[in-house]
């Protein structure tokens, strides 16, 4: 059990680092000079999404259109059509769910250079409860042709992904979390959109994870190693386009794949990996996710435990592949 002084939002053996939203906010602020075309469009949650750090440094390049996500996304699309790199951020649920048609019409369909950033994703936001939890967002974003969908796992990866997102020509959805995130990567670790990262070698089974679940996947692999089960761990930070080669290799070279994500069962990483592999290298699969249900209020670690998003559940899913 975590001690009262331990700022540990998630049960993992790894040290805790920056929340991904904080890492994004600092990176955006720092990259403002290098990317002079970047502008920010906020729906009055800039102090939560951390775009306010950029806005304070570059007030002439920041717009707050009020609590109006539909207009926010449309304005971002218009700014992008004027040659701006328009970053627009809100809670993942308000951005993707509320403004989905505006994302379709003003961003995806016309292929505008808009960077959609959804913070407070997943159930690990905790006490605010289900209405604030983006758990359909990855599925919604992946349903849009031509939108790159990125889910980062820690502060370092988020800083690198923020830069990669600004360099990428075209629409991007970047999914971020609220609580502090376990540290996965060393400073300076590289990041490329669409290229997954093999964090652990292994030949028996593969665990494919992203976001907060990467730390738990690594813990699960450690636990399984003690049982003599050798697991490969892949950080599939880009959900669209998938790193198909890494999946083909995993399905060919290991005995099965478990996909872990902080998202509904339907539409997210698990669905996409299963769809791809079923048509290429069918393999036994297991899934660890929120399921087919909404979240609720509670402390983040307690919620993750209750909803089965733990290293132990991932290890169980691998064990059940052995059957």
């Amino acid at each position: 059990m975590a001690s009262a002084t331990d700022d540990r939002s998630v049960s993992t053996t790894r040290p805790m680092g920056d929340a991904t939203r904080d890492a994004f906010g600092r990176a955006l602020e720092a990259l403002g000079a290098e990317f002079p075309d970047v502008v920010v469009v906020d729906g009055d949650v800039g102090n939560s999404t951390r775009t306010e750090w950029f806005a304070k440094k570059y007030p002439d390049r920041a717009y707050n259109v009020g609590i109006a996500e539909a207009n926010m996304v449309g304005v971002a699309g218009g700014l992008a059509s004027m040659g701006k790199t328009a970053v627009t951020a809100s809670f993942a649920c308000f951005l993707l769910n509320n403004a989905f048609d505006q994302i379709r019409m003003a961003v995806a369909y016309p292929k505008q250079n808009v960077k959609l950033v959804g913070t407070h994703a997943g159930i690990s936001i905790g006490e605010d409860g289900a209405s604030q939890m983006g758990i359909e967002d990855v599925g919604l974003a992946c349903s849009l042709p031509g939108v790159a969908v990125i889910v980062t796992s820690d502060g370092q990866q988020t800083r690198a992904a923020t830069k990669a997102m600004l360099e990428h020509d075209g629409p991007v959805y970047l999914r971020l979390g609220r609580p502090k995130a376990p540290v996965i990567y060393e400073e300076g670790a590289e990041f490329e959109i669409g290229k997954s990262i093999r964090l652990r070698e292994g030949s028996d089974y593969t665990i494919v994870a992203n976001g907060m679940m990467v730390a738990m996947a690594l813990d699960a692999a450690e636990a399984l190693a003690k049982e003599g089960v050798d697991c490969r761990v892949i950080d599939m930070h880009t959900v669209s386009p998938l790193d198909e080669q890494a999946l083909t290799d995993a399905a060919s070279e290991t005995g099965g794949i478990v996909v872990a994500e902080e998202h509904l069962a339907q539409g997210g990483l698990g669905s996409r990996v299963a769809q791809f592999l079923s048509a290429t290298v069918p393999t036994r699969m297991g899934f660890v996710n929120v399921g087919d249900r909404y979240g609720e209020s509670g402390d983040p670690a307690g919620l993750l435990e209750k909803y089965g998003l733990t290293a132990e559940k991932i290890a169980d899913a691998v064990r059940s592949l052995r059957g």
Binding site: G74, G77, G78, K84
Partner: peptide, 16 residues
């Protein structure tokens, strides 16, 4: 209902 928002973004870009 969406064109005015896009036009507003363009107008802001022109002003900037």
């Amino acid at each position: 209902g969406q064109g005015l928002s896009i036009g507003l973004g363009m107008a802001l870009g022109m002003k900037a």
